[in-house]
Design a protein around this nucleic acid. Sequence first.
RNA 1: GCGAGGGUGGCGGAAUUGGCAGACGCGCUGGAUUUAGGAUCCAGUUCCGUUUAGGAAUGGGGGUUCAAAUCCCCCUCCUCGCACCA
Length: 812
Amino acid sequence: MKYIHNAVEKKWQNYWQKKKVFATNENPQKKFYNLEMFAYPSGDIHMGHCKNYVIGDVYARFKMRRGYDVLHPFGWDAFGLPAENRAIEAGIHPEKSTMDNIRISDESLKSLGISYDWNREIISCLPDYYKWTQWMFLLLYKRGLAYKKEAYVNWCPGCQTVLANEQVIDDKCYRCEATIEKRKLKQWFLKITEYAERLLEGLDQLKGWQENVKIIQRNWIGKSEGCDILFKVMEKDITFRVFTTRPDTIYGVTFMSIGPEHPMIEDLIAGNSNESAVRTYMEDATKRTEIERIEKEKDGVFTGCHIINPVNGEQIPIFVADYVLLEYGSGVVMGVPAHDERDFQFAKKYDLPIRIVINPSESELELSSMTHAYEEPGIMVNSGQFSGMESNKGIAAVTNFLAEKKLGGPSVNYRLKDWLISRQRYWGAPIPIIHCDKCGVVPVPENELPVLLPKEIDNYLPKGKSPLEAVDSFINTKCPTCGSAAKRDPDTMDTFVCSSWYFLRYLDPKNDKEFCSKKNADTWLPIDQYIGGTSEHATGHLIYFRFFTKVLYDAGYISVDEPATNLFNLGMIMKDGKKMSSSKGNAVPVGQFVQKYGADVARLTIVFAAPPEREMEWSNEGVIGAERFINRIHRLVTENKSSVIRNKPTSFSKDEENLFIKINQTIAKVTNDLESFKFNTAIAALWELLNELYSCNKRSTVLGYGIYAFIHLLSPFAPHFADELWSTIEGKDSLEEQEWISYDKNYLNNRVTTVVIQINGKVRSHIEIEGGATEDSIKELAFKDEKIQRHLQDKKVKKIIYVPGKILNIVV
RNA sequence: GCGAGGGUGGCGGAAUUGGCAGACGCGCUGGAUUUAGGAUCCAGUUCCGUUUAGGAAUGGGGGUUCAAAUCCCCCUCCUCGCACCA
C-alpha cells in the first residue's frame, strides 16, 4: 500500500487553517520573530524560490514546538523593476499582473504547507502599505536625511531609469544587464553616509551574523582614515581640499589631478589657452563607461593652472584626469608618482618629475631603475624637517603639522555613497513631494498620505522620464503651503525603500494610524531569526534595512537599533549548473511538482540534498530518495500501527535497550541539528533510526515507542505526512499542537563501547568494553589480542597512549 | 590586484577542543519476490591486492604530533565579494 499525498496534504492544510494553528499569539510570553526575506511575486513560482520558505518553515515549526510564541509572517515586495519588467513582458498592466501573480504565489506557498500567519500578509504595492513607505520618506526628509541634488548618476538604458550604486553590478544593470551610462540628473538621495560610522560599528554587536556578510559590509562602507590638505591655486583664488591616506609623501607631490566631472574645472580653465582642449577631454571622459575608464591607459590634460604645495611652496601643474573619482574625497588628488602606482603611470606618460621621498628601511630607491611605485612604508627622505622619520610615524607628524598651520588636518572618508532612490518608472511608491514655484520643495502633509499611484494611465512603459509626468490628474496639484498651482514629484521610489521597513509592518499590519504601534514594536523586535539569500543582499537590502532601523530608533519609534540578531544565509538552488529560473528554462514549477510528488517530498528533497547554507543542485535522484523515505516510513507505520505506544518503555531486554538508546540519541541529534540549521544531518539521523526500526524482527514496546518518536521528529520536515501518521496511531489533533519530544538523559550513551587498538597510529584491532573498564584492564585485553600479538612480535613497546573509551595507541 | 570561502568515493555530502575517514542518501553489483517494472525487500559497494595477510588514500608538497581531512608553512585549482577609493 502506497502513501497517497494529494488528499492528505489538503486535509491537513485545511485543518491548520481552521484551527488557526499558525495564528500569532498577540500577547507572547516567549516571543520569537522568525522572518524569511521579502520576495517579489513572480507568478511562475518554482523550486528555486522555495528554499527560503521551506528552510524558514522547518525552523519556525520547530520553534513553535519548543514553546515559543512564534511570529512567522510573509508578504510581497510587489513594487519595483522585477514586478514591472515582468508585467511589461507579458503586456499586462503592472497592477493586474502583480496581483494575479500574488494570488498564484500564495497558492503555491499554501500548497507547500508553510506555517505563515496569513492574516498578516502584506503587499507593498497596496496603498495601505505604501502610505507608510511615503511616511518613511517624509520622516527621513524631516530629519534632513532625504535631499535632492544634481549629480552624475547610473542610468540604465534598458530599464530607462537611474539606479543606486548597489544595483550596478560590473557596470551592468542588476535586472536587465544593460551597460550603465553616466547621466547628470537631479535626483532624490537618502543620506545613508551620515550613518556610515554607526553602520560599521553596529556590525560588531551582530554576533549572530556570519563573519562573511559583515566583512562584505565593512568593505562596502570602506572606511579610510587619513588627512585633508589645503592646496591653493596659484593663478586663481581657489583652494582645494585634498584627501590622502599618505600625508607622509607630501614632499613627493609633483602634480595634481582633478576629476573631469568636478564643478570647479570651469573656474580653473576660464580664459586659459587650453580651455577648449580641456573641454573636449571632459566631454569624452564623461561619455565613457566606468569600465572603459578603468581599462584604458591613464591619461589627462593640463589645465593651465598650478597649485602650491603648502609645505614647501612648490608650484605644481594641475591636470584633469579621468581616473579621479568625483564622488570620493573631494574629487581632487595629489599626485605622488614615486609612491603611488597610478600616479607613477600617469607621470611616466606625461614625463612629469618623480621624486622619491620614502626609502625602504634597508635600501635606497634608484629613480632610473624604478618600474613601479614604492608603496610600502619606509624612511622619509627629501622631506624637509621630517627627513629621517619612519613614514608610519610621519603620517601623524605631517597631519599634526598641517593642522597646526591650519593647512589641513585629520579626516575620515567612506566609500559608501548616498542612496539614490528616485526611479523614472511607473510601478513604485510616488515620492510624496510637491514642487511649488513660490515655496520650492514642499513635503506632502502627513494627513494627505498616501499619494496614490494613478491606476488609469495611457502608457506606463518606461521612456526615460517618469510616465507619471504625463498624467495630468496626478501631476497637477496645489501647494499645501501657499495654495497656488504646483506639481508633484513625478518619480517613484526604489523598491528597496519598501523592503527597508517591511519587517515592522508585520508587527501591526492593519494599523491605519501608525506604521506600527510602539507597543507591538517593543513586543516583537528584534527579528530573532532572519533567513534568506545574503550574498545578493549583503551590500543592498541588508545595509538599507539596518540604516532604516537606526533612523527609526533615533526618532524614537522603535527601541532597537539593529533589526535582526541572527541572520542565516541560504545557498541557491541550481539546476544543470545554473541558477534555477524560468527564463533559463530549467525551472521546476511548484504547482506541477506538488501535484505529482507532494509538498512533503519537495520539502525533504530541499533539506536533505545539502546543508542549507550551501548551493544545492536540484536533481531527480534527490527526489527519488525523498519519495522512498516517505514510502518506507509509511510501510513501517502501517505494519506496526497496533504496537505504537507513547510512553517511554520501562523494562526491556538487552537488544531492546540498545534500540531505546538509539531512539534517544536520535531525538537528541535531531533536536540539536534543528536548532543549528543542520537539517541535512537531521534527516540522515532519521534515516538511520528508520533502518534500525526496520531491522527489528520482534514487535516490542520499544519499537512502538520508536515509531512514536520518529513521527514527532519527522513533523517539522514533512508536516502533512507526520500529522497523517499521527492520526493513524490515534494521536489527537495536529502534532503542531503537541510539545516537542524530549529524550531520556540516562539512555544517551551506548552500553558497549568500542576501543580502537592502534600500533604506531594504525588501527590493528578493536576491543568492546562494557561499563567503566580501567586503563589497565584494557591494556591487558589488548596485549592478549591475537592480532595485536602478531604485530608486536620482535618489537619493543616504547610508549602507550590511552584516550578513555576511545583509543589505545601502542608505540613501538 | 585585494578580501573571504572552498577542494573528501562514480555523485550529493558526513566526520573540526587532533583520536576507527567516507555516516546518510543516490547510483552501481548480486540475490529474493514479482509474468515483463524507473515498485518492494535482503546483502555488498573508497582504491590496490584473486582470497587472506596487508598496503595506499581527504587538490599537491613539506612540517608539528603517539595520532592530522582537522593545526602550521609553501604551491595549485575553483567559487564569491570588492576593484583607479587617492
